[in-house]
Amino acid sequence: MTLTATTRSSMVTRIIPDVLFDVRRPQRLIERSVMVYRRSPMVIFSGFFEPLFYLLSMRVGLSSLIGDVEVGGRLVPYAEFVAPGLMASAAMNGAVFDSTMNVFHKWKHARLYDSLLATPLSAGDVAVGEIGFAVLRGVLYSGAFLVTMLALAMVQSPWMILSLPACALIGSAFAAMGMACTTFMRSWADFEYVPAVTLPLFLFSATFYPVSSYGDWSWVLQLSPLYHGVALVRAANLGEFSIGVLGHLAVLVSVTVIGVAVTARRIETLLLK
């Protein structure tokens, strides 16, 4: 029965965004972003510097005050300890900025998504495409950060190359979550609350000091998606992987999937009514 077959396939696409069946369509949105930024490369370029300034500040300042810290039974200069944390945080901050302010502008002011939905693109394509670009941009910055660490001889293991996919995953988790939250925002005033979430995450995700410093409170770290990202990048830098890595990966992947699904659903209910 062809009728039931089509009905069933549409039931499936209602539950799993049908974007999973064709990845070419979301790419069109990435193409659009590239087209936009090609004209203002400075916007992209200047984004490299903020994480680098943080890294240098840690190196010349805190690292010489603190000296070495103990991580996993070995002593590491503070700057090298904190660098993976900064790298992961930069991936988070970039993704959040792209998926909140930028997306809100395109949604409410430029009405971009209304015009996209009139084409063969679907709500899922829009969600994945926008998140995809945020990730791409984040990986670019992470790459630059990694090169700087190499230049300053702060990389400890060749496995550090894996920090790039790890940062891509951090980026996609936060971009997906950020975009999902953005679909609930009513006005620009709501964006005041974004730093209320990202700042505590930045400061309290074992970014600046080892898990052991948290003492009895270390379980709270598990609630921070950024902590899982920091743990991955740190493991890559040391080249020491434990079974826990799988758990960190699972958390970030789940956050991404939930974020994409919520975003696609919200676009559908808000724009396709």
Binding site: R28, E31, R32, M35, V36, A110, R111, L112, D114, S115, L116, T119, P120, L121
Partner: peptide, 19 residues
């Protein structure tokens, strides 16, 4: 609902790409 961040020509080209 034109794409204000793009030029006239780019608007048409990217829209074609959506198809």
């Amino acid at each position: 609902q034109l794409d204000a961040e793009l030029t006239v020509e780019e608007n048409l080209i990217i829209y074609a790409r959506y198809f």
